[in-house]
Simulated assay, not measured.
Amino acid sequence: MHIHDLSKHNSILNSFIADLRDVNIQKDRMRFRRNIERIGEVLGYEMSKTLQYKDKTVVSPLGEKQTSLYQNEIVLCSILRAGVPLHNGLLNYFDDAENAFISAYRHHKQTPETFEIIVEYLACPSLEGKTLILADPMLATGQSMVATFEALRPFGKPKNIHIVSVIGAQPGVDLISKHFSQDTHLWIAAVDEDLSDKGYIVPGLGDAGDLAFGNKLQQ
């Protein structure tokens, strides 16, 4: 897997990540969502440099200009509900992309430390020969991403796969590296070292879905 960790190079992205982590700033849900959206835009821009391009003649009121435009047929798939702001950020840049949505959540068993990933709702176009972008802001254990990809298999084999996340944990990055092909690209704004006993990223930022949209109903 090709891992693009943008935190290894200083940029304005550091400010967006710092705001997301800050316990005082993240109380503003609108700002929290917007920061995730902006990170999606930055990651999408960096990802766009790896797409396939072809020259096209563009006609302006005063003449013509050769411009290289990307040719990939993109399907953007986000994991509900936390993935919505990240999806919006990517869609701001790939506005002609097809869209897919999937619900994948943790179902806790006897203890908070043990859980399985449940996939319920799924809406997806054909993926055959297309460029699939899997978007989930938090790459913690990596199990949700793996379960999502398995659920998408009946929709065809993508030509290219890009995974886009805001913050990940190293164990999650390691897990998906084992389950996705070597030519898969991971675009991520920050990678933290640890997971808590309950499988949350440390230091991370908390529950992205709750911070973006409010506390969810208890299962």
Rank of each mutant, 00 (worst) to 15 (best):
D5K: 08
L6P: 09
L6D: 06
K8Y: 03
N10S: 13
N14D: 15
S15M: 10
I17T: 04
A18Y: 10
L20D: 15
L20C: 14
D22S: 13
I25Y: 06
I25C: 05
Q26F: 00
R29L: 00
R29E: 05
F32D: 05
F32V: 06
R34S: 05
N35T: 02
N35W: 01
N35I: 02
I36A: 14
R38T: 14
E41G: 07
V42I: 15
K49G: 07
T50F: 12
T50R: 11
Q52L: 12
Q52P: 04
K54A: 14
D55C: 05
V58C: 11
S60T: 15
S60N: 14
L62Y: 01
L62S: 00
G63V: 03
Q66A: 08
S68G: 08
S68M: 15
S68D: 14
L69M: 15
L69G: 13
E73W: 00
I74A: 03
I74M: 04
V75M: 07
L76S: 04
G83T: 00
V84E: 10
P85I: 10
N88F: 00
N88Y: 01
G89W: 05
L90N: 01
L91M: 15
N92F: 01
N92Y: 06
F94C: 05
F94H: 04
D95I: 02
A100G: 02
F101N: 11
Y105M: 08
Y105C: 06
H107F: 05
H107N: 10
H108M: 07
K109E: 09
Q110F: 05
T111S: 12
P112F: 03
P112M: 03
E116R: 08
E116C: 06
I117H: 07
I118N: 07
I118T: 03
I118P: 01
I118G: 01
A123W: 04
C124S: 15
C124Y: 10
C124T: 11
C124F: 05
S126F: 09
L127G: 02
L127T: 07
G129K: 12
L132K: 14
I133K: 11
I133S: 06
T141L: 08
G142T: 00
Q143F: 07
M145C: 11
V146S: 07
V146N: 07
F155Y: 15
G156F: 03
G156T: 06
N160K: 13
I163P: 02
V164C: 12
V164D: 05
S165F: 00
I167H: 11
G168S: 03
A169N: 09
A169C: 04
Q170F: 04
P171Y: 00
G172L: 05
L175G: 01
I176S: 13
I176L: 13
S177C: 14
S177L: 04
S177V: 08
S177N: 15
K178G: 03
K178Y: 04
S181H: 14
Q182P: 07
Q182G: 10
Q182Y: 10
D183Y: 08
H185K: 13
A189K: 12
L195I: 08
S196E: 06
D197Y: 01
G199K: 09
Y200C: 04
V202W: 11
V202K: 15
G204E: 06
G204N: 10
L205F: 12
G209V: 08
G209L: 09
G209N: 11
L211A: 09
N215W: 02
K216Q: 12
K216D: 12
Q218Y: 11
Q219P: 15
Q219I: 02
